[in-house]
Amino acid sequence: MTPNTILIVTHSNDNLAIDKVTTALIHKGYKVVRLNTDLYPYQVRLEVLYSSSCPGHQLITETGEILLDIDIYAVWYRRFNPGADLPKDMDKQQRKACREEAKRTLLGYLQSLDCFVMDDYWQIRKASNKEYQQKLALQLGLNMPATLITNQPAAVMKFHQAYSGKMITKMQTAFSLVQDNREQVVYTSKVEEQHLQQLDGLALCPMVFQENIHKQLELRVTLVGDRVFCAALDSNKHAEMRDDWRKIGAITMHEWFDYSLPEDITYKLQALRKKLSLNYGAADIILTPEDQYYFLEINPCGEFYWLDQYTQAGICEAIAEHLHHQGVKEN
């Protein structure tokens, strides 16, 4: 019997992109099972048996839905947060150990499935390495802002001088800090003169420093296999978002608009996606007032749903179509 189920790996708080992709897949005749990884192992059950007589896998979701490995046609790996729903009053050491065991077990399960996966967890981890991305991007001829990643204050001072003080700083990982009972997200920020007197903290944590490129537009380029979706935002309209559009991004989603990316940039981005062994990627690019394109990064699991909402891009349908066609090749 031909497998006919698409497994979507996500968490219970994901956005409506999951529902839209699910609807598109159902219209193509597939059954869709959603694996909310945050509910494993406390609510979701998994049985993996290795035996010469009857090897197999059985996944039981929080709703009681049963999925056998032989029924899986393809997997869309989107979000991963195992053990998040474990009781908060557990001993901290035990909770940490349980989460790690849940993570390893789920990853082992996914890795053992004999079907198409968009995209493999370990390949995503490798492709997420910013230094690796930048090396490949330069090799492929993409323009990039000069970038310094360091824990040495002297190197920052030299870099700051080399670019006449036009410098921003950011972190490689997204995180937030709680101050005065308020969550403060760490965004990309401009480095001012007074900040150069506060570089001692680099001894505890390296940071990314980058040449500050003046923007005409910010571009989000979503790659789904060979299909390319590009949208633009004029972040100069709002002072709060000139360094990082995400600062007030939630209230300016409607300001994104469709944009035609030049063929040579499209070609280089697709070459980068393939070099990274990805089926999906969301790239950030800056267009300067001189019409020069500067690549910043590509996110292997980058968000896209707001583009479908406000530009009618059709990315959800493209993901469903890609899962269908690539699954045909695998099966």
Rank of each mutant, 00 (worst) to 15 (best):
24 A>H: 03
38 D>V: 08
24 A>T: 07
10 T>N: 03
38 D>Y: 09
27 H>N: 13
17 A>N: 11
16 L>M: 14
30 Y>F: 15
28 K>G: 03
35 L>I: 05
35 L>H: 00
31 K>P: 10
18 I>M: 03
39 L>S: 05
32 V>L: 04
27 H>T: 10
31 K>W: 12
23 T>N: 15
14 D>V: 05
26 I>C: 13
9 V>T: 06
17 A>E: 09
39 L>H: 10
34 R>V: 13
29 G>H: 06
36 N>P: 05
17 A>M: 08
23 T>P: 10
17 A>Y: 12
28 K>L: 15
16 L>Y: 15
8 I>A: 02
37 T>R: 07
31 K>C: 14
9 V>F: 01
23 T>D: 12
20 K>Q: 14
15 N>G: 14
13 N>L: 15
14 D>Q: 08
22 T>I: 06
39 L>D: 09
15 N>K: 12
16 L>D: 15
19 D>I: 08
28 K>A: 12
23 T>R: 14
33 V>G: 07
33 V>H: 11
18 I>F: 01
11 H>R: 02
11 H>T: 01
39 L>W: 10
28 K>C: 05
36 N>A: 11
37 T>L: 04
33 V>A: 04
9 V>K: 07
18 I>D: 07
12 S>H: 00
38 D>Q: 04
33 V>R: 04
16 L>T: 12
11 H>A: 02
30 Y>C: 05
28 K>E: 11
21 V>L: 02
8 I>F: 02
26 I>V: 15
21 V>N: 02
25 L>H: 04
9 V>Y: 03
19 D>M: 10
10 T>W: 05
25 L>N: 07
31 K>N: 15
39 L>V: 03
21 V>M: 02
38 D>I: 06
15 N>E: 12
23 T>H: 11
35 L>D: 00
25 L>Q: 06
36 N>S: 10
26 I>F: 08
8 I>Q: 02
35 L>G: 00
21 V>R: 06
9 V>P: 01
35 L>N: 00
34 R>G: 02
24 A>K: 08
33 V>Y: 05
22 T>L: 10
32 V>D: 03
26 I>Q: 14
9 V>H: 04
9 V>M: 04
29 G>K: 07
35 L>R: 01
22 T>W: 06
18 I>G: 03
38 D>H: 07
26 I>A: 12
39 L>F: 07
26 I>N: 13
13 N>H: 14
12 S>V: 00
22 T>N: 06
